[in-house]
């Protein structure tokens, strides 16, 4: 409960600071719409040439893209600014201030920051879902449940990577790398070459973040797959907590 209140306090503070810049927000909206149009067109190109990304109909592939837009919005608005801030705190030694607070430190560094840049992506994701789910005969509830679990999994992976900043000190490029990962997540995994497919399933589980929610919603995979996704997300989440605690032991703070 206390954590929920704290989350809203952070959120309000960040919103108050950002919403003053409405022009920025409008610009972001325009650019995200343009970018999404580009993504849609890129997808359409494959279908125009009669290639179906490994057996996905157009509306079905749009579902995967919707999931990727949701994740992108989550990433841009919450994950990316917070992960950058962790690196900044380690560089300057201000992580000390967080560690001294009577609040779980992983929680603090994960939700402290927020930007509005990702909101247009969420909007586009919602529009895509509203069109594609009825058109493809997909179950939107399974889909959204899958996307939320996918977001947890993505958070855990991103946090695991960002935690290594404790040793590397400067690690802003993690954010760039994760952005590149999300760009790939917009296509069904069957569209890729086999080696990449294996990589994106077993090494970097992008498959579970966008393709699986769409597959379950379409009934290609049973709802049991959501349970598997939940298990995977849960395991990675616990792993990220354990790793954060382990990393903090190596943190040479500014004051000690």
């Amino acid at each position: 409960m206390r954590y929920l209140r704290l989350f809203f306090t952070f959120f309000q503070a960040a919103m108050a600071a950002r919403m003053e810049y409405r022009a920025n927000f409008l610009a972001a909206l325009a650019v995200v719409l343009l970018e999404s149009a580009g993504m849609l067109f890129g997808l359409f190109l494959f279908y125009r040439n009669g290639y179906d990304l490994g057996g996905w109909r157009w509306q079905e592939a749009l579902l995967v893209m919707a999931a990727a837009r949701f994740l992108d919005g989550f990433f841009t608005s919450w994950l990316s600014p917070n992960l950058q801030k962790i690196s900044e705190r380690v560089q300057q030694g201000t992580l000390d201030f967080v560690l001294l607070k009577p609040v779980d430190s992983q929680f603090w560094v994960s939700v402290e920051q927020f930007t509005v840049w990702g909101l247009p992506s969420l909007l586009v994701g919602g529009l895509l879902l509203a069109y594609a789910a009825p058109a493809a005969g997909a179950n939107p509830f399974y889909f959204l449940a899958g996307v939320v679990l996918g977001a947890v999994l993505f958070y855990a992976l991103a946090f695991l990577m960002a935690t290594t900043t404790i040793w590397f000190v400067k690690l802003y490029n993690v954010v760039n790398f994760l952005g590149a990962v999300l760009w790939n997540a917009q296509y069904p995994i069957s569209a890729f070459d086999r080696p990449f497919r294996l990589f994106m399933t077993y090494v970097l589980p992008v498959y579970f973040m966008t393709t699986v929610p769409a597959e379950v919603a379409l009934g290609r995979k049973g709802p049991g797959f959501l349970a598997l996704l939940a298990l995977l997300a849960g395991v990675f989440f616990l792993l990220s907590r354990a790793f954060w605690r382990f990393a903090l032991r190596s943190y040479g703070s500014a004051s000690s």
Binding site: M161, T164, T165, W167, F168, V169, K170, L171, Y172, N173, V174, N176, F177
Partner: peptide, 8 residues
């Protein structure tokens, strides 16, 4: 900053 290089 080797981590930065790797992730770049």
């Amino acid at each position: 900053y080797r981590g930065e290089l790797l992730f770049f």
